[in-house]
Design a protein around this nucleic acid. Structure first.
Length: 243
DNA sequence: GTCGATCATCGTTGCGTAGC
DNA sequence: GCTACGCAACGATGATCGAC
């Protein structure tokens, strides 16, 4: 009999495939990094995280790249992981959406096991939310879900955002608006293993922190998961939200 | 009518720049 | 000082087209 966290991890597990280890030389811009590979020398890799990546892009860190082998792409390598010493950290912002989507689709999202019909990237109002989830039998209302990737860690607490985010604030307002007729949820996916709690980063964006607290008061469900990150990534444990 | 391939569009984040 | 916009590289999605 698997424990709940093991069931969640097994169901949502995403393999990163064969990875090449190297050393981060520099993040040239938000989309491109320079990495030194032992056998191939200096290569350019696409960075699938256009956020600030505060504390997660220090030159000299061990990083792992995936070679997509695509002739179409400008940079065939994609930067997937960085070794922060205490843990590997996943940087790909697409992974959290896939993890959460799979958790719903396979009926293992804690407390929402009967919400299994997932529509991705659904336009609503002025923005587009990551997913709209429905019950399998079509009964009941919709569940609107916005997924946020979180990598910033201080001590044993994960923080979001890692830069001031007007867009994030817009998403929170949209979730509060949708809550009037449907359910709405914000899911923070922490792509690292160490955190024991999650908090809004008031020292970076106090407006976002205030809005998050308002959203919770209004009934928007907010949850945070930490992940197992190795050559696979999976949702592992929920961690408490500290406001 | 169905299926697969191809193409276009949109969204992603934050910096730099132009215009007011 | 503030606001609006373009830009970077990629993935997801929807539209369109041709083949069967």
């Amino acid at each position: 009999m698997l424990r709940p966290s093991e069931t969640l991890c097994k169901a949502t597990s995403i393999s990163l495939g064969p990875l090449e280890e190297g050393v981060l030389v520099s993040r040239i811009n938000r989309f491109v990094a320079q990495v030194m590979l032992p056998k191939k020398g200096l290569v350019y890799a696409h960075c699938p995280n256009s956020g600030s990546m505060l504390s997660c892009c220090e030159p000299g860190r061990r990083v792992f790249l995936k070679n997509n082998g695509s002739l179409v792409r400008k940079y065939p390598f994609t930067w997937e992981l960085i070794d922060m010493g205490s843990s590997l950290v996943g940087i790909d912002t697409n992974i959290p959406n896939r993890l959460v989507s799979e958790a719903f689709r396979l009926g293992v999202f804690p407390g929402y096991e009967d919400f299994r019909i997932v529509r991705r990237e659904v336009k609503t109002g002025d923005s587009r939310l990551d997913m709209c989830v429905l019950r399998e039998d079509g009964k009941g209302g919709r569940l609107w879900v916005e997924v946020k990737n979180c990598t910033l860690l201080l001590g044993k607490t994960a923080f979001f955002p890692d830069a001031k985010t007007l867009r994030g604030q817009r998403h929170l307002r949209e979730l509060m608006r949708l809550k009037k007729n449907d359910e709405s949820m914000l899911v923070f996916v922490i792509q690292r293993q160490e955190p024991e709690a999650f908090s809004p980063a008031d020292f970076i964006d106090p407006d976002y922190g205030k809005l998050l607290r308002d959203a919770i008061k209004e009934g928007v469900k907010v949850v945070a998961f930490k992940c197992k990150v190795k050559k696979i990534v999976c949702l592992h444990h929920m961690v408490p939200i500290r406001l």
